[in-house]
Amino acid sequence: MPNGAAYSRRMGRVTRRTPAHRIDLGDPEGPRVVARPDTVAVEEPLEVRVGGTSLAVTMRTPGDDFDLAIGFLLTEGLIDAASDVRHLMHCLDEGEDGRPTYNVVDVTLAEGVQPPPASAARDFYTTSSCGICGKASIDAITTRSRYAVAQDPLRLSPDVVAGLPAALRAQQKVFDRTGGLHAAGLFTGEGELLAVREDVGRHNAVDKVLGWAAREGLLPLAGHVLAVSGRASFELTQKALMAGVPVLAAVSAPSSLAVELATETGMTLVGFVRDPRMTVYAGAERLGLTAG
């Protein structure tokens, strides 16, 4: 574990009570309106700094911020392992109510590790605001990845894949209270759940899980499966690839670029995983499947 990374998983509130009106249109006597507080997921900005220089800002659910920072640096190709980070710390700033917040993480890289280029902050802003485009992005990610997932010998049962969403859902504690969080879970090829993280951003949930795996010394994640509660975007497929994950399973649909990236790199991509059905978009051989 990098120096300074001993921390509570929860820094700040993850849920908040807010006034709300519940409306029921099903009553034959007319709409019923009940004023009752509801619980919502907290969404706050997290600024990631490297050596005191601002690199990126993401909207996230507070908690596991150090894993999020390490996972982000890892999946963006800025570090190779958790050992590339010497120290992490929360920079305390004052919130609107005068109490300190934990919305800035400053990362100190290990000696000899190159800092991000000066253009990196602008590049992250451009990517998040303007999107990514086609074949050029796939070529860039393929070049940057350190792991050849196509060579991963993992074979797994379709029954194992079908059971991943239920295992993931059973651990979504904050979702139970809010209905407003994404989740990512890391599983072994036998379906054993190793870690689950929740966040308002699906990419943050993935970064938190992969950052945890990096701190545990598990990289590359050969023989593992990453399961996500929503759709499989290009960005999530990229993050899985950068950590050496050979299989990405999603409850919802993949995007066209996600399918292209998975196909190009030899990753297995499974969407619409809803027991007993699923759709395999790339790498069906890992599940031992042939079309009838």
Rank of each mutant, 00 (worst) to 15 (best):
T58C: 11
H87N: 06
R99S: 13
A82S: 13
V48H: 04
T101S: 02
S54P: 04
D93M: 12
G71C: 10
G71E: 10
D64C: 13
Y102I: 01
D106K: 00
P62Y: 04
F66A: 02
A81R: 13
S54Y: 02
E43R: 08
T108V: 06
G71V: 11
A56Q: 13
L92G: 11
V107H: 07
R49E: 07
R99D: 10
L88K: 08
G63C: 05
D84C: 11
T75N: 15
G63S: 08
E43D: 01
H90Y: 09
L46I: 07
D80Y: 06
D65G: 13
G51P: 01
V105N: 02
T39S: 10
C91P: 02
V104N: 08
L88W: 04
N103Y: 00
G71P: 10
R99N: 11
I70V: 15
D64Q: 13
T101I: 04
E94G: 03
G77Q: 14
A81N: 10
S83I: 01
L55C: 02
L78E: 14
I79G: 09
T39Q: 10
D80N: 14
M59W: 14
A56V: 15
L92H: 15
G52T: 01
V42Q: 00
T61Q: 12
T61E: 11
H90V: 05
F72E: 14
A69Y: 01
M89D: 06
H87Q: 06
R60A: 09
S54V: 05
G63K: 03
G52W: 00
G98A: 06
D64V: 06
A56H: 15
L88G: 05
E43Y: 00
Y102R: 04
V48S: 03
R99H: 11
A69N: 05
V85D: 00
D65K: 09
V104D: 05
C91L: 12
V57R: 15
T101H: 02
F72G: 13
D80A: 15
V107D: 08
G52M: 01
G95L: 12
G77V: 12
G95R: 13
E44D: 03
V57A: 08
E44R: 09
M59Q: 15
E43A: 09
L55Y: 04
V85A: 00
Y102C: 01
